[in-house]
Amino acid sequence: MARAKTRSSSEPRDETARGEAAPNPVWFKPVMFGFMLVGLAWIIVFYLSGQQWPIAQLANWNIAIGFGIMFIGFLMTTRWR
Rank of each mutant, 00 (worst) to 15 (best):
G50K: 02
S9P: 01
T6Q: 12
K29G: 02
G68E: 10
M1T: 11
G34R: 10
R81T: 04
V26L: 14
S49K: 11
P54A: 09
F46A: 04
A22Y: 01
A41V: 14
I69E: 02
A41K: 06
P25M: 03
M70I: 02
L58T: 02
W61G: 05
L48N: 05
M32D: 02
E20K: 06
A2P: 12
T77C: 02
N62G: 08
T78N: 09
T16A: 15
E20T: 07
L58A: 11
I69W: 05
L58F: 12
T6V: 15
V38D: 06
Q52V: 03
I72R: 03
T78M: 05
L48K: 10
W80T: 01
I43E: 07
A41T: 10
W53Q: 08
A21P: 00
T78Q: 07
N62E: 03
M70V: 02
W80E: 08
A41I: 15
S9K: 15
W80K: 01
I72D: 03
M1V: 06
F67H: 01
P23N: 02
I43C: 09
G50A: 08
Q57C: 04
I44N: 04
V45A: 13
K5Q: 07
N24A: 12
R81S: 07
P12M: 09
F33A: 10
N60A: 09
L40I: 06
